[in-house]
Design a protein around this nucleic acid. Structure first.
Length: 569
DNA sequence: AGAAAGATGAGGTCGCTT
DNA sequence: AAGCGACCTCATCTTTCT
C-alpha cells in the first residue's frame, strides 16, 4: 500500500500519515489527501497566501489562522492535519454519509448515487423522447442561455403546462440557491480535505423543497453528443457559469474518453474545480466518430471551426471507395479510430465469404451481418470488388485532422504510427473549442501541453492561427517527441519548443522557473492516458486509479501548481 | 529483435418488447 | 419493471513471421 503511493512520487512519511488519517481501505481519500498535500507544500511565501490556500480548500479563516498559529508557517503538513482534526471533531455530530465517497469502486459509487437520484426520477429523457411542446420549450430556454440540464430540471419540477416565464423564474431561483449553497460551503467548516468544493454540497439538508435533487447526480452523457454546440448546430448553449475557482487565466483544457467506467468523470470534474465536462462526438466534425469528454474553462461563445472544413462523411473522405460501396453497407461515418487495425487474414476471410455468393444480386442476410459486424469492429472500407481493407495511416492522419505524413518516417514503424494516431486528438474538434483564443490573444500564447502525443493541441492552435510564443510539451514517448519537434521545425514556428519526457520532471521548482521566464502560461492542455478507462481494454480496465490513467492526477497537480503560482503573481 | 498477426470480452447505453 | 438484443469501445498479451 505504502509502496503504491510512494511509487507515485509521494514521500513515505506523508503517505504513512495519509493512510493513518484515512484508513487503509480508502485509497480514494488517501490519494486526495496526498494531492492536497503536494499542492499545499508548493511553497507559499507569505502568511496570507498560506491562509488563502487552506481557505481555498474549504476551511474557515479562523480555523486556518488558529492551525497556523499552533503549527508554525512552515509545517503545512501538520497544519493540514490540525485542520482535519478540527473538521472531524465538528463533523462527527452530523454523521453524514462518509461511506460512498470513501470507496474507490465505481460500482459502489454509482449504485449509491443511482439510489439517490431514484428518489425522484429525473432523467434527460426530454431529448430522447421528443414531446413537441417540451422540445420547443427546451429549445427556447437553451437559446436564452440556460443549460439543457437546468431547463430539463425546471420542466420536470414545474410540470408540463408551465410557461417559459415561470420556468425562467424557477431556474433563476435554483441558480441563486446553488450560489448560496456554495457560499455557505465557503463559510462553514469543511468536513474533509476535498480537492474542490463539490462533493459534500448535495449532502446538506438545508435545501428548499423544489430544489432537492440533482445538483450532484452522476454525470450522464448527452444524446446527441454535441456538447455546448458543434459547427452544424452551434450555440446550443451560449452561456454557462463557471465556479469561481475554475476561472482563468490560466485557461485549461482536459480531454479523455467519454465512455469511461462509472464515476470516473465525476471524479475528474470534481478535481478540475467542478467544471462540467463537455462531451462531444467528433462525428460532427469529421468522417469518424470519437466520443470524448472535455473539461475546460474556455469561453464558449463565438467559436468557429477550422477551414477548410474536413470531409464530413465517408464518401467525402474516401471518394475512391464509393465505386465499391454496396448499398447494404449503410455506414456514413466510421467508428472510433483506435490503436490497432485488422489483419490481412481477416479481410481475406471476408473476401472469400463474399465470393461464395457472387452469383446473387446481394449476399444473404447472415453474410451481410458477418461482414458488417467486422466492418464496424475494424473500421474497414471498400477498396475493390468484395475487397475490404483497414485504413492506411495517411487516411487516419487525414481523418484526425493532421497534415499528411505527420507521423511518417523518422524511424517509426507502421504499427506505432497507428498507435500514436489512435491515442491522439481529433484536431478539428479540439480546434473548435480553442478557437476563442485567437481573438483573446492576438500576440500569441504560452502553452503547457501535457501528454502531448503527436501534438494535436499544437497542430490545432497552429491551424487556428494562434501564435505560440513558448510551448512546453511533455510526452513519455520518444518517437512522439520527435514527431512534434519535426513538425515544429517544418512549420517554421517562431516560438520556442521545450520538451520533457515525464510529467514527474515538472515539479514546483521547474514550473516556477518557467512561469517566471515566460510570464505565466495562458493554456494548460492535455489528455491523460485512457488505456485503463477505454472499453477496448480487456486486460486492465482499472479506472482512474489504473497504472497509466492515474496520471490524470499529475495533470491536476501541475495545473493546480500553475494556477496557484499565477494567482500569487 | 522488432514488426505483424491472432486471441482475448466486459461494461456500458439505447430501443424495443414482454 | 424487467428482460433482451443490438451496438460500441484513444487495448493488451502471446505467438508467429521476417
Amino acid at each position: 500500500m505504502i509502496d503504491h503511493f510512494v511509487g507515485m512520487g509521494f514521500s513515505e512519511e506523508v503517505v504513512a500519515k495519509a493512510i493513518q488519517e484515512n484508513g487503509e481501505q480508502n485509497t480514494d481519500l488517501i490519494l486526495e489527501a496526498l494531492l492536497k498535500h503536494s499542492a499545499s507544500s508548493s511553497a507559499s511565501s507569505s502568511k496570507s497566501k498560506l491562509i488563502d490556500h487552506f481557505v481555498g480548500m474549504g476551511f474557515s479563516v479562523d480555523m486556518v489562522a488558529k492551525a497556523i498559529q499552533e503549527n508554525g508557517e512552515e509545517n503545512t503538513d501538520s497544519i493540514l492535519e490540525t485542520l482535519l482534526t478540527y473538521s472531524a471533531l465538528g463533523q462527527s455530530s452530523q454523521a453524514e454519509q462518509h461511506i460512498n465517497s470513501d470507496q474507490n469502486s465505481p460500482e459502489l459509487d454509482g449504485s449509491f448515487l443511482d439510489g439517490f437520484s431514484d428518489t425522484d426520477s429525473f432523467e434527460g429523457e426530454e431529448i430522447t423522447n421528443p414531446d413537441p411542446d417540451k422540445e420547443e420549450k427546451l429549445v427556447s430556454l437553451a437559446s436564452m442561455g440556460y443549460s439543457v440540464q437546468e431547463a430539463s430540471i425546471a420542466m420536470e419540477r414545474c410540470g408540463p403546462n408551465t410557461s417559459i416565464a415561470e420556468l425562467t423564474d424557477f431556474i433563476c431561483a435554483a441558480q441563486m440557491a446553488k450560489a448560496a449553497d456554495a457560499l455557505l460551503a465557503e463559510i462553514e467548516d469543511k468536513p474533509r480535505p476535498k480537492p474542490s468544493n463539490g462533493y459534500h454540497k448535495h449532502k446538506k439538508r438545508r435545501m428548499l423543497d423544489y430544489e432537492k435533487p440533482p445538483i450532484d447526480e452522476p454525470i450522464r452523457l448527452p444524446n446527441p453528443m454535441i456538447g455546448f454546440g458543434v459547427p452544424s448546430n452551434p450555440d446550443v448553449i451560449v452561456h454557462r457559469s463557471l465556479p469561481e475557482a475554475a476561472a482563468g487565466p490560466p485557461y485549461f483544457y482536459y480531454e479523455n474518453v467519454a465512455l469511461a467506467p462509472k464515476g470516473v468523470w465525476d471524479t475528474i470534474s470534481r478535481f478540475l474545480y467542478d467544471v462540467e465536462p463537455e462531451f462531444v462526438d467528433s462525428k460532427y466534425f469529421c468522417a469518424a466518430a470519437r466520443k470524448r469528454g472535455y473539461v475546460h474553462n474556455l469561453p464558449i461563445k463565438n467559436r468557429h471551426h477550422l477551414v477548410p472544413l474536413p470531409p464530413q462523411n465517408i464518401y467525402e473522405a474516401l471518394p475512391l471507395s464509393r465505386k465499391w460501396w454496396p448499398s447494404w453497407d449503410t455506414r456514413s461515418h466510421l467508428n472510433c479510430l483506435q490503436t490497432c487495425i485488422a489483419s490481412a487474414k481477416l479481410t481475406e476471410r471476408i473476401r472469400k465469404a463474399l465470393e461464395e455468393c457472387d452469383g446473387e444480386p446481394e449476399p444473404p442476410h447472415h453474410v451481410q451481418k458477418f461482414v458488417m459486424d467486422e466492418c464496424r469492429k475494424w473500421n474497414l472500407v471498400w477498396v475493390g470488388r468484395n475487397k475490404l481493407a483497414p485504413l492506411e495511416p495517411d487516411e487516419v492522419e487525414m481523418l484526425l485532422g493532421f497534415p499528411k505524413n505527420h507521423t511518417r518516417g523518422g524511424g517509426i514503424s507502421r504499427t506505432d504510427r497507428y498507435k500514436s494516431l489512435g491515442n491522439s486528438f481529433q484536431v478539428d474538434t479540439v480546434a473548435y473549442h480553442l478557437s476563442v483564443l485567437k481573438e483573446m490573444y492576438p500576440d500569441g500564447i504560452n502553452v503547457l501541453s501535457l501528454f502531448s502525443g503527436i501534438g494535436g493541441a499544437e497542430v490545432a492552435l497552429h491551424r487556428l492561427g494562434v501564435r505560440m510564443k513558448n510551448v512546453v510539451s511533455v510526452d513519455i514517448s520518444e518517437v512522439n517527441r520527435n514527431i512534434v519537434r519535426s513538425w515544429w521545425e517544418q512549420t517554421n514556428q517562431k516560438g520556442t519548443l521545450i520538451d520533457f519526457a515525464d510529467v514527474q520532471q515538472l515539479d514546483a521548482n521547474r514550473i516556477e522557473q518557467m512561469i517566471n521566464a515566460f510570464g505565466g502560461f495562458d493554456l494548460v492542455i492535455g489528455g491523460s492516458p485512457c488505456n485503463n478507462l477505454a472499453g477496448s481494454n480487456r486486460h486492465s480496465r482499472d479506472g482512474l486509479e489504473g497504472k497509466e490513467s492515474s496520471l490524470f492526477y499529475d495533470y491536476f497537480r501541475i495545473l493546480d501548481l500553475v494556477k496557484n503560482m499565477m494567482q500569487r503573481n
